[in-house]
Design a protein around this nucleic acid. Structure first.
Length: 580
DNA sequence: GCCGTTTTCGGCCCGACTGTTTTCAGTCG
C-alpha cells in the first residue's frame, strides 16, 4: 500500500473546508438541503476511519452521503490542496465572518445582515458596531438584541466554549443532584453529547420527566447560575460558573423514553430515525412515536419501546452517531459493548519513583481496590528528567521491587516502564534492559513539531523494536489544548498490527487517545488494543471509566481489548512472550 | 447536493423560545 499522501491532506482539513462551505452557503441563504449535504459531508470526513485523500472518485462515491459534487471537491482538495468553490465563496464573504457564527444568538442571517449593512468582517468590527449603537438601528434588531450581542462577545472571551467529558460530567451531576433534591418525584436524566460519551461537550443537556412546573424556577435559581439565557415552561437555558451552558427540558412521565431518545441525539442519528419512522407510517418526536394515519401514540414511555416501535433493538447512547448502528439494530446484531467491569488489568501506571504522587505499595493497593486483577507499573525513563525518569540501573532495581510485591496486595503485577521514543525513533533505555522487563510501553514526549514523515518514521522504528509491547497515547493530542502530532496514524496502526504491538486508549480525560475513530481503525486493521489509566495517583484508576467510554464509542467488545483477558492469558499474549 | 425495489424529479426531521414582528423570522438543539 502506498503511503504517499498528496499534501498530507487529512480528513480534518477536508471536514473543515466542507463545513466552511456549508457555513458560507448558509450566510448566502442558499438551498438548505444543499447546505445540509455539505454539513453532512464534513461530518463524514471528520469521522471516516480511512484517509479520504487516498481514495479515488468511485471509492468516494461509494460512501453514503458523498455524491458526484462532494466526491469531486474532495478529489480536488486531495490533488491541489485547495478548493475553488470554497475560494469563490470566501471572495463573497471573508472567511473571518465565520467567527461571528460562533457567538451565542448570532446565526447566518444575522451575520449576512451585519456584513451587508454594517460591513462587519470580524469579531472586533462587530464589537465596535454594537458599542456605537449601530446594531440596534438595523431592521429586525433592537436595543435588547444589541445588548445580547455585547454579552455574547464578552462571554466568548471568558469561556472558550467546550469542556472535557470529565468536567462536564461533574458539572451535570451537580445540577442533576440539585434538581432531584428539589423534585424527588421527577426523574432527572443527563442527555445530549454527554450521555453519548463524546470526548468534549459544548453544553450540558438535562431532562426532567414528571416534574411540576416549579422545577423550572428552581433550575434558574440554581446557586451556580451566572446568567439565564432563556426561560420557558418546558425549556430553559442557563450559564453556570466555569462557563457551562446547561439546558433543561421538562416532559411528562409518559414521554420520558421518547424525550431521552430525542435529546440524546446525535442529530444525525435522530434524522435517520425519523426518516425510518416515516417509512413505517410513523412520526417520531420528543413526546412519542405516533401513527401518521390517526395520530395515535404507539410508544414513548421507555426508550426500549421507542426503538422497538421502529423495529429496532435499543441502541446504546455511545453508538448513536449514524455510523451504521441503525442497520445493525434492525438486524438485532449490535455489539455487546465493553463495560468497565470487563477490564481486568491496567497497563500504564506511575508511582513516586518517577512523577507519580503515591508510592508503589499504595498504588498496588488502590489498583486492587479499583477491582483490577493485575497492573503493570510503568514509570518514566531517563530522558524525561523533569519527571525523574529512570535510567537502566534504576529501572531494573525498581522492577525487582515491583516483582517482589506480586500477589502481596491481592493483585498480580508486571514490572515495566513507559519508555520514551526519542526523536530518531530509538528508545530511551538499552535493549538489554528492556528485554529484562515484563512489559514495555513506549511513547512520545518530545520534539512534537517534527513533520509528518519524520514523526511517522519515528513511530514505525519504535514499533520495529522487538521489546516494545504497547504504544501509549499514539497521537499525542491534548483535548482543548494541543492538536495531535502530525503522524500517519494509518501507517502506525498497520505496523502495530503487523508486529503484534498493542495500541493504547489512554483514559486520561484530557487525552482519550486513541480516540473513538482511530480505535475503530485499529480494530478494523487487526491491531491489538489496550485501555489504560495512565494513573499518577491512587485516584487515577477512576479514569478507566473514560477510556471504556471511548472503547464503547469505537464499537469495541471485550474480545477486542487485550486487558479484558485474565492475567496469565494476557501475559502470554504479549508480543515478547509469543513465539514468532 | 443527495438519493431511489412505486421515484432520475421531487422530495429531504421537528419543535421551543426570543425579540421585534402586529403574524413571524431567526436561532438553537
Amino acid at each position: 500500500m502506498s503511503r504517499r499522501k498528496a499534501f498530507g491532506l487529512d480528513n480534518q482539513t477536508i471536514a473543515r473546508t466542507l463545513g466552511e462551505i456549508a457555513d458560507l452557503l448558509e450566510i448566502k441563504n442558499e438551498n438548505p438541503f444543499k447546505i445540509r449535504a455539505y454539513r453532512n459531508g464534513a461530518d463524514i470526513a471528520a469521522n471516516h476511519p480511512h484517509q479520504l485523500a487516498t481514495l479515488d472518485l468511485p471509492a468516494l462515491r461509494e460512501i453514503p452521503g458523498i455524491g458526484k459534487d462532494l466526491a469531486a471537491r474532495i478529489r480536488e482538495m486531495s490533488e491541489t490542496g485547495g478548493c475553488a468553490y470554497h475560494q469563490e465563496l470566501v471572495a463573497e464573504f471573508p472567511a473571518t465572518v465565520l467567527d461571528l457564527l460562533h457567538l451565542q444568538g448570532v446565526g447566518p442571517k444575522t451575520v449576512a445582515t451585519f456584513y451587508r449593512e454594517l460591513h462587519v468582517r470580524t469579531i472586533d468590527d462587530l464589537e465596535q458596531a454594537a458599542k456605537s449603537g449601530r446594531v440596534r438601528a438595523l431592521r429586525g434588531m433592537g436595543a435588547k438584541k444589541e445588548a445580547l450581542i455585547l454579552k455574547a462577545l464578552e462571554e466568548r472571551k471568558r469561556f472558550a466554549g467546550r469542556h472535557l467529558l470529565s468536567e462536564a460530567t461533574e458539572a451535570a451531576s451537580g445540577v442533576a443532584a440539585y434538581l432531584r433534591e428539589f423534585s424527588p418525584a421527577a426523574t432527572i436524566d443527563v442527555v445530549g453529547s454527554l450521555r453519548r460519551g463524546c470526548d468534549t461537550c459544548g453544553d450540558l443537556d438535562l431532562l426532567a420527566s414528571g416534574a411540576s412546573a416549579e422545577l423550572m424556577d428552581a433550575f434558574v435559581r440554581y446557586p451556580l447560575v451566572e446568567r439565564v439565557l432563556g426561560r420557558g415552561d418546558t425549556k430553559s437555558s442557563v450559564l453556570v460558573r466555569r462557563g457551562f451552558q446547561v439546558d433543561l427540558r421538562l416532559v411528562a412521565h409518559d414521554s420520558r423514553g421518547a424525550a431521552l431518545q430525542y435529546f440524546t441525539g446525535s442529530k444525525a442519528h435522530n434524522i435517520a430515525l425519523r426518516d425510518r419512522a416515516i417509512g413505517l407510517g410513523l412520526k417520531l418526536n420528543e413526546y412519542g412515536v405516533f401513527r401518521l394515519a390517526d395520530e395515535a401514540k404507539v410508544a414513548g414511555v421507555t426508550e426500549e419501546e421507542v426503538y422497538a416501535a421502529l423495529g429496532l433493538e435499543l441502541v446504546p447512547p455511545e453508538l448513536r452517531e449514524d455510523r451504521g448502528e441503525i442497520v445493525r439494530a434492525a438486524d438485532r446484531s449490535l455489539p455487546r459493548l465493553l463495560e468497565r467491569t470487563d477490564v481486568r488489568g491496567d497497563l500504564h501506571v506511575h508511582t513516586s519513583e518517577s512523577d507519580g504522587r503515591d508510592d508503589l505499595a499504595d498504588m498496588l493497593r488502590a489498583a486492587a481496590d479499583a477491582g483490577l486483577e493485575y497492573v503493570a507499573v510503568t514509570d518514566h525513563t531517563q530522558s524525561l528528567t523533569m519527571a525523574n525518569g529512570l535510567d537502566e540501573s534504576r529501572a531494573l532495581a525498581h522492577a525487582a521491587r515491583i516483582r517482589a510485591l506480586d500477589r502481596r496486595h491481592g493483585i498480580r503485577v508486571l514490572a515495566g516502564v513507559e519508555c520514551d521514543i526519542l526523536p530518531d525513533g530509538s528508545l530511551d533505555l538499552d535493549d538489554d534492559c528492556l528485554a529484562a522487563l515484563d512489559l514495555v510501553v513506549a511513547s512520545v514526549h518530545s520534539a512534537f513539531n517534527q513533520d509528518r514523515r519524520e514523526m511517522t518514521d519515528r513511530f514505525l522504528r519504535a514499533i520495529e523494536n522487538p521489546h516494545v509491547d504497547i504504544i501509549a497515547h499514539p497521537t499525542g493530542r491534548m483535548l482543548l489544548k494541543r492538536e495531535p502530532y502530525a503522524v500517519d496514524i494509518e501507517a502506525v496502526v498497520d505496523a502495530a498490527a503487523r508486529q503484534g504491538v498493542a495500541l493504547e486508549i489512554n483514559s486520561q480525560a484530557h487525552r482519550l487517545d486513541l480516540n473513538d475513530v482511530n480505535a475503530t481503525l485499529a480494530r478494523d486493521r487487526g491491531a491489538r488494543i489496550v485501555i489504560s489509566s495512565d494513573a499518577h495517583s491512587r485516584q487515577g484508576f477512576d479514569a478507566l471509566a473514560w477510556g471504556v467510554i471511548v472503547g464503547r464509542r469505537a464499537w469495541l467488545e471485550p474480545r477486542h481489548v487485550a486487558n479484558t483477558l485474565p492475567f496469565d492469558a494476557f501475559k502470554a499474549g504479549l508480543r515478547r512472550n509469543r513465539a514468532r
